[in-house]
């Protein structure tokens, strides 16, 4: 999913090979946002967090976000934090925010000063100091059998480490009230009815071939291109990338119809087929 901003080879085939090309490249980094200066408790919680999903964090490119805590963090504390993160095999490469002294300290540690970029949506489970956009609600993910990576990667650009094949899931049994089905790395397809009080979660799209009476959350990692497809819509709640609609707001014109649900200009569109 690398996005070519400028291709150096517009002349087509057969021309001489150029010795280099400049290409735009997006990559996903983790931003470690400090709400305060790191103390013993901070390190304890950090160690705890990293242990849960060690593979997720190994060699992960990391930016330290100082925007909320530059007043409290001292250059010494920053040096200590960077050493700690590097010891844990996190590839710290930049800082964001910070005053003159902090940026100087960061440069001394070989870190670049990053501006711009935007945050991926923060999930409800994380202690959030960030104000969520009022129109969005990020449902806390139900507990998973295996530990989960916490910060969602940025939605649009390519994930760098390797391209992971999506892990789609197909369910061929009715999804009953009180049951939760999660496809946390791909699409979810249900062949059968989904009952009222049942929940479907997918990082990608959700398809339901059967009466859909439950709740569906597509694009749970923030993918705004995710869609929900229902053979017969009677859902309690529909959400894509955190933007949701409840059954109250679904008109009679789409009820029991075959529909698709997608995001357009920050609005959740429910469009019948045919």
């Amino acid at each position: 999913m690398q996005t070519d901003v400028a291709s150096g080879n517009i002349d087509g085939v057969g021309t001489t090979l150029k010795p280099f090309q400049f290409r735009g490249r997006f990559l996903t980094a983790l931003a470690l946002r400090l709400s305060t200066a790191p103390d013993a408790r901070f390190y304890e919680m950090l160690a705890d967090r990293l242990e849960k999903t060690p593979n997720f964090f190994t060699d992960a490119p990391v930016i330290i976000d100082l925007e909320q805590s530059q007043a409290e963090v001292t250059p010494e504390a920053l040096t200590e934090l960077v050493a700690d993160l590097r010891r844990r095999e996190l590839a710290v490469f930049g800082v964001q925010g910070g005053d003159e002294a902090l940026r100087a300290a960061a440069a001394g540690l070989g870190l670049i000063s990053v501006t711009g970029g935007r945050d991926a949506p923060l999930r409800g489970a994380l202690p959030s100091s960030e104000q969520k956009r009022p129109s969005r609600v990020f449902q806390e993910r139900p507990p998973m059998p295996e530990a989960q990576p916490a910060p969602a990667p940025e939605p649009e650009p390519a994930p760098i480490p390797q391209r992971v094949a999506p892990e789609n899931k197909i369910v061929t049994m009715p999804v009953r009230s009180g049951q939760t089905v999660i496809a946390d790395k791909g699409d979810l397809t249900v062949v059968g009815p989904v009952s009222s009080g049942a929940e479907l979660f997918a990082a990608g799209n959700i398809h339901v071939y059967g009466r859909m009476r439950g709740r569906a959350f597509a694009g749970i990692d923030g993918d705004e291109n995710a869609r929900i497809f229902c053979q017969s819509l009677d859902a309690e709640l529909l959400a894509i990338a955190g933007l949701y609609r409840t059954s109250d707001s679904l008109g009679a014109d789409v009820r029991h119809k075959m529909v698709q649900i997608y995001l357009e200009d920050e609005r959740l569109i429910v469009a019948p087929f045919g």
Binding site: M173, V175, R176, S177, G178, Q179, S195, S196, G197, A198
Partner: peptide
Amino acid sequence: VRDSDRMLGLLSS
């Protein structure tokens, strides 16, 4: 009916 549906879920898990 909803409670029965829930029981069916438990029966299958």
